Simulated scan of single mutants.
Amino acid sequence: MRRVCFLLKVRPERLAEYRERHRAVWPDMLDALRRAGWHNYSLFLRDDGLLVGYLETADFEAAKRAMAATEVNARWQAEMAPFFEDLDGRPDEGMRPLDEVFHLD
């Protein structure tokens, strides 16, 4: 299983709403993520808007493609895009995995 970590930046004026939206992620979005192979998926948000995402998956590119093929993901990405700074396109297209340099089992 590959561990994937990525960073994005939420607009400071949208932090409260971003947090609220993630307290009620659509059930069909959650189902799509699971079916696409996203495991142990977490988002961590700092008060300045730094968003750290973490997930585990067998194949990150395949998992992203599987999500991109779903209608629910298109709707979710369209709704989430205005929350982010410095994106060219959809938020899921802005996820650039960080290099893992250490891991303790």
Rank of each mutant, 00 (worst) to 15 (best):
R11N: 14
L104S: 08
A16N: 07
V72L: 14
E100Q: 11
V4N: 06
G37P: 01
F6H: 05
Q77T: 09
T57I: 11
D31N: 13
A81I: 10
V52P: 02
S42V: 03
V10E: 01
A24M: 02
R46V: 08
R96D: 08
E100R: 09
D28Q: 07
A62T: 07
T57G: 08
M80L: 08
L51D: 03
E20V: 01
R75K: 09
R90L: 12
C5R: 09
L50W: 15
S42G: 01
Y54R: 05
L98Q: 12
P82Y: 13
R34M: 09
W76K: 04
A58N: 06
G94T: 00
K64A: 15
F84M: 10
N73W: 01
D99C: 15
W76H: 03
R2P: 05
D88L: 12
H22A: 05
R3F: 13
F84N: 10
G49L: 03
A36K: 03
D86N: 03
R34K: 12
E100C: 08
D28R: 07
D31P: 02
H22Y: 10
Y18E: 07
A63N: 06
R34L: 06
V52L: 15
R3M: 13
V25Q: 13
P12Q: 15
P27T: 00
A66Y: 00
M95Y: 04
R96C: 14
E56W: 01
R65S: 10
E13D: 10
R11D: 11
M80N: 04
F6P: 00
Y54K: 06
T70E: 12
G37C: 03
D88M: 11
A81G: 15
E13N: 04
T70R: 14
A36I: 05
V25P: 04
L50G: 11
V25I: 12
D28Y: 06
A32R: 01
R34T: 05
R96H: 14
F44V: 02
G89C: 07
G94H: 02
T70C: 11
D28G: 03
